[in-house]
Amino acid sequence: SKTSNTIRVFLPNKQRTVVNVRNGMSLHDCLMKALKVRG
């Protein structure tokens, strides 16, 4: 089974995003990807 960790990230202006960290990806990469999608 694939394991994925879901991390809630609290952003300024009362924004919130959820990042799924996959195996083999660093938290930083996942964060940058999530913020790019939002931006």
Rank of each mutant, 00 (worst) to 15 (best):
Q15K: 04
H28R: 12
C30I: 08
V18L: 02
M32A: 10
L27P: 00
S4D: 09
T17A: 03
H28N: 12
N23H: 12
K2N: 10
I7V: 07
K2V: 06
T6A: 05
K2T: 09
D29N: 12
V19D: 01
L27K: 05
Q15E: 09
I7P: 05
V37M: 10
V9A: 14
S1L: 13
V37W: 09
N13H: 10
V18E: 05
P12T: 03
G24D: 12
M25L: 15
C30W: 01
S1I: 13
K36I: 06
A34T: 03
V21E: 01
M25R: 14
F10S: 06
V21A: 13
G39R: 04
R16G: 03
K36M: 09
R22L: 10
K33I: 00
S26I: 11
G39E: 06
R16C: 03
L35R: 00
V21S: 08
T6R: 07
T3A: 13
V21L: 05
G24Y: 08
L11Q: 00
R38Y: 08
D29G: 11
P12A: 02
F10I: 00
L27M: 04
L11M: 03
T6L: 15
S26R: 09
N23C: 14
K36S: 14
R22P: 13
K33D: 05
V37L: 12
M32I: 11
N23S: 13
V21F: 08
T6V: 15
M25I: 14
T17S: 15
N13I: 03
G24C: 13
K2E: 05
K36E: 04
A34V: 02
K33E: 02
R8P: 01
T17N: 04
N20K: 15
M25T: 15
L35P: 01
K36N: 11
V19L: 14
N20H: 11
L31A: 08
R38Q: 08
F10P: 08
D29R: 08
D29V: 09
N5Y: 07
V19I: 13
T3S: 06
M32T: 12
V18T: 05
C30S: 14
M32R: 06
V9K: 08
M32K: 12
K14N: 12
S26G: 04
N13S: 06
K33L: 08
R38P: 02
V18D: 00
I7D: 08
V18I: 10
Q15L: 00
C30R: 02
V18A: 04
H28Y: 11
T3I: 15
I7N: 01
M32S: 08
K14E: 10
R22G: 10
D29H: 10
V9G: 00
N5I: 05
Q15P: 02
H28Q: 13
S1G: 11
R22F: 05
T17I: 01
P12Q: 03
F10C: 02
P12S: 01
R22H: 10
H28D: 12
D29E: 07
S1T: 14
T6M: 13
S1N: 14
N5H: 12
L31Q: 01
S4C: 12
K14R: 09
H28L: 13
L31T: 09
K14T: 05
M25K: 15
V19F: 10
D29Y: 09
R8G: 02
V9E: 00
I7L: 15
G39A: 06
L11R: 01
R16H: 15
